[in-house]
């Protein structure tokens, strides 16, 4: 193994992390996040008692909440994300979930119903046929994962905006929340929900969405990181109460704009 000439000869005592083992372990998903909550980051939290897990947790979450607000302020609801030629589409797309591929539980599209709740006037459940009857939008966009990888994919389906109009949603509500067949709750802000490149995707590369990628319907938004795109959606709720999300519970940023 070749040792990098830029690697420091001595590193700070990592013992301080022992005191915060529970907090660091809580974010078990990816090494990047564990490194984020490290000695360097902790020393930036001046005024915090570093032996107090709760205060460190609260401070980090306060920074994250502040970042969410900044991102919401900067979000331009009319600005489109870059699109690409169909020749660049990766077929099949990359699989990712919080569990391995063999744990995917396919959804039966014939009996599947999409429940609608919250601040809407029409709560009648939706079928795939009804979603397919809405005007369809096709977009070739880049999927960007918080882990650092990305790919270009082609998605089609009704815009979430047209769906929300159809169910008589309160478009002044703050959040649109999603429940999924794989217990991956998620939510986005209303401005992003109404963005023209936020789809309830029914197809990939002009073919029905395959099972591992969220059949029969998943969210695809061009303006947020991959983990904000829940698959196998079973229910949509329009609400003013912060719904959070699967990774957000573990400290991932909620707005997650790109």
């Amino acid at each position: 193994m070749i040792r990098s000439p830029f690697r420091p000869q001595a590193v700070p005592d990592a013992g301080i992390l022992d005191n915060h083992r529970a907090l660091v372990r809580q974010v078990t998903r990816r090494g990047m996040f564990r490194r984020g909550i490290s000695l360097g980051a902790l020393t930036m939290l001046t005024g915090c008692n570093l032996s107090d897990d709760a205060s460190v947790d609260a401070a980090l979450r306060a920074v994250s909440a502040f970042n969410d607000k900044v991102q919401a302020l900067l979000f331009d609801p009319n600005k489109l994300a870059p699109t690409y030629p169909e020749s660049m589409v990766l077929k099949p797309p990359r699989f990712n979930a919080y569990y391995p591929i063999d744990k995917v539980r396919p959804v039966d599209g014939a009996t599947w119903k999409l429940e609608v709740s919250g601040r809407v006037s029409d709560r009648a459940p939706w079928t795939t046929a009804r979603l397919a009857a809405l005007p369809q939008t096709d977009m070739v966009i880049r999927h960007v994962c918080v882990e650092g990888w990305d790919y270009i994919g082609e998605w089609s389906g009704p815009t979430l905006k047209s769906f929300l109009h159809s169910v008589g949603a309160d478009l002044n509500a703050r959040y649109v929340a999603f429940h999924t067949a794989d217990d991956y709750p998620s939510s986005i802000d209303m401005a992003t929900a109404l963005h023209p490149q936020t789809l309830l995707a029914l197809t990939y590369a002009r073919e029905t969405l395959p099972d591992p990628y969220g059949y029969p319907v998943r969210l695809r938004t061009s303006t947020k990181l991959g983990y904000k795109n829940p698959k196998w959606i079973t229910a949509i709720e329009v609400t003013n109460d912060y719904p959070g999300g699967f990774w957000e519970k573990s400290g991932f940023g909620w707005f997650a704009g790109i």
Partner: peptide, 26 residues
């Protein structure tokens, strides 16, 4: 105001990210 808020946000994000360099990895 937007630009100032953005700068403040970027600074805080940078502060948290800066910690990564010192950490050990798998």
């Amino acid at each position: 105001r937007r630009a100032l808020v953005a700068l403040a946000g970027a600074g805080l994000i940078g502060a948290v990210a800066a910690g990564g360099a010192l950490a050990t990895s798998t």
